[in-house]
């Protein structure tokens, strides 16, 4: 049982690291701000959740695990909201670039 838990935690942590790598790669690869924000948000949501899940599996049912749940909930709230505000601001101040990029859709 210990081994199963360890392997599950390791898989979660590895996937979290992969997600963070994808996020960083996307932020440097893309030029348009909305694409970059999309890939940055992957690291903040998926990467964070998988990392926290892996740590929770490693530690088992303790106060630490419940704190990690709280961290995930709060960060999911704040990080997505800040992405939303930045996107709305980009749309407000640079509609021309947004229309060029999206083809007027």
């Amino acid at each position: 049982m210990e081994w199963v838990r360890f392997i599950a935690a390791a898989i979660c942590l590895i996937f979290a690291a992969v997600m963070e790598c994808i996020a960083v790669f996307g932020v440097y690869k893309f030029r348009f701000v909305m694409n970059r924000m999309h890939s940055a948000a992957i690291g903040d949501t998926m990467g964070l959740m998988l990392g926290a899940l892996g740590l929770m599996l490693l530690k088992g049912s303790r106060w630490f695990s419940y704190k990690m749940v709280l961290v995930v909930v709060l960060l999911w709230m704040t990080s997505t909201i800040s992405s939303h505000v930045i996107m709305r601001m980009e749309y407000n101040i640079d509609q021309k670039a947004v229309e060029e990029e999206t083809g007027g859709r």
């Binding site: 709060l74 709230m77 704040t78 909201i81 939303h84 505000v85 709305r88 601001m89 407000n92 101040i93």
Partner: peptide
Amino acid sequence: RYLEPKNDIIIQKVAAFL
């Protein structure tokens, strides 16, 4: 508030909680 969202319902709901 020209450059910032005005009365954005999403931010307001989350701010009321946070």
